[in-house]
Computed example of a mutant assay.
Amino acid sequence: MEIREQIFKSLSAVKEKSPLIHHITNYVTVNDCANIVLAIGGSPVMADDKEEVAEMVGFASALVLNIGTLNARTIESMLSAGIRAKELGVPVILDPVGVGATQLRTNTAEKLIKELKPEVIRGNMSEIKVLAGLEVAIKGVDSLADEEDSSVVAQKLASELGSVIAITGKTDVVSDGTRVCLLDNGHRILADVTGTGCMTTSLIGTFCGADKDYFTGAVAGIISMGLAGEFAYASLRPGEGIGTFRARLMDGIYNLTPEILAKEGRIRYE
């Protein structure tokens, strides 16, 4: 089945099934992640206490782990939930926010990858290069890496880890180790709003929870955010800025249809 047909099928499945997406995520963007899942048609739960996460993931269709605001308690919860998810066949989607900025983040990301073998890992270029063992400059949780050779990096790391690797940036890249997709939707203003990367990971998790084609889920989640960003920016009037854009970004996700997603996605293969 051609990728556009798969994307159409994936969003149709989200709308039909409303998959429960369990998040253990960061407190900066937790509300945005919950709302973006609702907007696309899923159902979010944001439980992170170690006493309930293993039980909660038993009800979920996907588990999203985001290390943006790490602490010892949530690291333990992530591992507990992730181990249970793997036992149940629930896909794990990892967002290694700021990996490489501190030893705690790097060690935690490496441990989660080693023990949980996530189905999808989504990050910016700096984060993915760190996971690939490449030298890269870090500025907090923001990417300073150029996107040269991003396809090669994504494909090689996907092959090594057995995970779908998704790199978001000016041109987004998704690889499962064999296939490589380049995605050209979006607008640069997305980088001016906190949490668009985290929300993209939540969208990927929602698609992966509805349809077990994780490569297509990563492509569909990224294109959804890119298209919503384009629509939101195009709607701005003089005097409106990122506050209005942020609200309309959510509207853009809410109003996506399988037809729009499949037709308007700008997809290239390498």
Rank of each mutant, 00 (worst) to 15 (best):
E148Y: 04
T106S: 11
E240S: 12
D48T: 07
L88Y: 05
L161E: 04
G133Y: 05
D251H: 11
T171F: 13
A228V: 03
G205N: 12
G89M: 10
V97R: 02
E2W: 10
Y269E: 13
A72I: 10
G82Q: 01
V37W: 01
I75L: 12
T196Y: 01
H23F: 15
I7A: 05
Y214L: 09
N71W: 11
I167H: 05
A262M: 13
Q103D: 11
L236R: 02
P19W: 02
E52R: 09
N66M: 10
S12E: 13
M56Q: 06
G229K: 00
T178S: 14
A191M: 12
S61D: 15
T171I: 15
V14L: 08
Y214H: 14
E76Q: 15
C33M: 15
L70A: 13
D184K: 13
R4E: 07
I138E: 01
A154I: 06
T106C: 07
K50G: 08
I260K: 12
A81V: 08
S18A: 14
G226H: 03
G265W: 03
V153C: 05
S126C: 13
I189E: 04
N35M: 06
G89D: 07
S77M: 06
I222T: 06
N71M: 06
I93W: 09
T74R: 11
E110K: 09
V14K: 00
G140K: 07
